[in-house]
Amino acid sequence: MVTKHFNEPRELAYGAIHAELFQEETSWINRDSSTIFAGKTQRDLLIFAMALGRLKGHKSDVKDRQSNIPVSNMPEKQKWAILSIALAEHNDLMCLKDENPHYREAERYANEGLKILRSHIDKWGVDYPRYLEAELRDILKTSTKTLE
């Protein structure tokens, strides 16, 4: 379902410190990468990191912005993942009248989420999918957020 949004930004950005994860031939999203993100898109990685950052309650400003992720062709579900954080924060639908700040907030969560993700992938290596799956099952079971 295509929805009209208010003041949606043109792009999402990540910080230069994380650029190698997105852009290089050896990036996580490269089809030959050994990570769980092999073959996925830059925006999939960013949204994942954002959710992880939000779950941990960690966010930080994005320095040296690399605005490479167009918002216009982002699926509605991913847009609403971003907007649901804003709605949970403001508890007011009026916050949807200007979406731009929510996307900036999403970038801030992703900025920290990527750091957490690096440590998880370093720690779990090829077993990361198993670890993630177990954690997600746990969240669904207890409905509390327990990722370390």
């Binding site: 769980i36 999939d44 991913q78 969240i139």
Partner: peptide
């Protein structure tokens, strides 16, 4: 997993 995890994390 990558597609669904964000929504569970933001449940």
């Amino acid at each position: 997993l990558v597609d669904t995890a964000p929504y569970i994390l933001l449940k």
